[in-house]
Design a protein around this nucleic acid. Structure first.
Lengths: 345, 345
DNA sequence: GTGAAAGCGCTAACAA
DNA sequence: TTGTTAGCGCTTTCAC
């Protein structure tokens, strides 16, 4: 089969360029403080030999890996129902790539995997971790914290433990929800319902809070709990229709939920937006643009969220080595949302 | 900030257990040929110290990394439009995890990234690669091939170069398409159209071929090209309706396409399945179950595809080290499909 | 069955 | 500015 070509080492390059290993190392790592002539000679040798540094050897001494773990607790999340996950990953990947870091993906399925993840992090294979901490009282954040690895969370972690020093990136779920509901009131709607997401996730809780901010004295029967899925949206919409037949608007916790609600409304013969106005959240294009009617929704820039998470982490990693941190510790970031008007409200 | 606890080394464990480093190493790596008493003592020391092997040091000598790259060429694919990607990753992740391998994710955005990927693979950071080669004459497979890294492809690579020794996992696109079309003929339909996917992907080509297998003398006007998106499905359906108003069935290249087609049919006042029967491909639950009417479709097990890719690769990796391969080289696998009957056909 | 010792390829003091 | 040298933590012959 393929001959396993013995990869050239620093030694080989040094020999070919007629310099010491140290000099080659310097050149390979930026070339500062090496005379131009030598730099060129070394570069040439590197090219001719097709030298690529052995990352394992390098890590062994530098204790850096230029690798970041992305941890996704998945089975219970909507990760596999919409493109959320992929977009976030794309943002992360772009940013990491731009800084020559690798992305190690850790998908976890329940408790069994937590130990594995903890071990992996404690094993010092990666320089930091990006974590999607999607559920209240998920033990994962605690485990990670105790592994002592710099970490940035995606979404405000709903975590009852120590929160100082916890860095996260989130969108302004509460503000976005307020905007959505205000838009509905601006339309003259008064019986505005909310279909919440899975309330063990902070995003769902925050959106509900935003709804309440505007609908201070809302009829509690106007609030139904969904689970971020179309099926959940359908169920909740049926409940609402039964409990409050006079409902004239719905703010759904996300686009998928809204899609389910739209279907039930159509079945029930309610016209959208004439009889009932509907707003979603996410602006998941494949969903929001395809519903009938097209969905008015609150847009969040998911890819940017991912990119930002990576950026904060990398900044922290750059900061750490020097015992006297020059740069300030990164703090959490909350991204704005924008209302996208389409046909449904 | 957090005290960087100095991680215990083999040396430390050896000292604590009162044995040599070599013995600890043996125990950590399975413990064969070490007396039971000592094994226990070492295990105890490992636990007490919380010892975790340093992977970099290990890799340096073993030249194994227990890591696999997953390479996804993405911007041009449907990767970010449906849960395909996530499901595939899940399958891969499960299998890799079960064999203590890490998943390094490489997302590429066009040509610029190819060099980076090639360099990464050539750099010997990973033991093998899983590649989603989605387009005809994508240069990536060639680059990867020449990096000399064991590789398994997801989907039959539509690659004009050397194909001997190329291992891939695919579903029986052609057979599934045949089943779908036969189902439609069995329903008594005669004017059966096909909305193809993006024909620069083998899956689209194979599904079209399957359609042709059954509709040998099909009116060429019954074939329209889509692009695996709902918008493409809509466009193609409009064309079809115009060209062939007598169409009484549609086999769409995937569920998303079918969803678009359904919408256009509804607009056009055609009843589904009474006037026009529709079949999709994928059985992407969030899509297929949510269309109106629910979609009859060809199911493929995407997660299993991912799992299988990983399994084939790991098998190959196990095979390689011994110069005299005992196990036969893995060969490609084509998974079966099943027709899922719902309401649309 | 166990230990001693020789590296794996690289970086980082320190010397020159 | 460049070279010399000492490890980083681990596996793996090779003796015992």
């Amino acid at each position: 089969m393929t001959e396993t070509a013995p990869r050239p080492t620093l030694e080989a390059v040094a020999a070919r360029a007629g310099v010491s290993r140290a000099t080659v190392s310097r050149v390979v790592n930026g070339g500062d403080g090496v005379r131009e002539r030598l730099v060129e000679r070394v570069r040439k040798a590197v090219d001719e030999l097709g030298y690529v540094p052995n990352q394992a050897a390098r890590s062994l001494v530098t204790r850096r890996h230029d690798a970041v773990a992305v941890i996704v607790a998945e089975p219970e999340t909507r990760v596999f129902a919409d493109p959320f996950f992929a977009l976030q990953l794309r943002g992360i990947s772009k940013e990491l790539t731009a800084h020559d870091n690798q992305l190690v993906l850790l998908l976890t399925e329940g408790r069994d995997d937590h130990a594995r993840v903890a071990r992996y992090l404690a094993g010092g294979h990666v320089d930091g971790a990006l974590v999607f901490s999607l559920h209240l009282d998920d033990p994962l954040p605690g485990l990670i914290q105790s592994a002592g690895v710099p970490t940035v969370f995606g979404g405000r972690p709903g975590w009852s433990g120590e929160t100082r020093g916890v860095v996260y990136v989130d969108v302004d779920n509460r503000g976005g929800a307020r905007d959505a509901v205000r838009h509905l009131t601006g339309l003259g709607r008064t019986r505005i319902a909310h279909i919440a997401g899975a309330l063990d996730q902070t995003s769902a809780v925050d959106r509900l809070d935003g709804y309440r901010d505007v609908m201070v004295d809302a009829d509690p029967r106007l609030i139904a709990e969904g689970d971020f899925t179309p099926a959940g949206g359908e169920r909740a919409m049926r409940e609402l229709l039964e409990r409050c037949p006079d409902v004239d608007a719905v703010f759904a916790a996300n686009d998928l939920t809204a899609a389910g609600a739209l279907r039930v409304l159509r079945e029930a013969g309610r016209r959208v937006p004439d009889d009932v106005a509907v707003i979603g959240f996410d602006d998941m294009l494949p969903v929001a643009e395809q519903t009938d009617p097209a969905l008015t929704t609150v847009r969040q820039d998911i890819e940017e969220m991912g990119r930002l998470m990576a950026r904060l982490l990398l900044r922290e990693l750059d900061r750490r080595p020097s015992d006297e941190p020059v740069a300030p510790a990164p703090s959490s970031v909350v991204l704005p949302t924008t209302l996208v008007r389409r046909a449904s409200a």
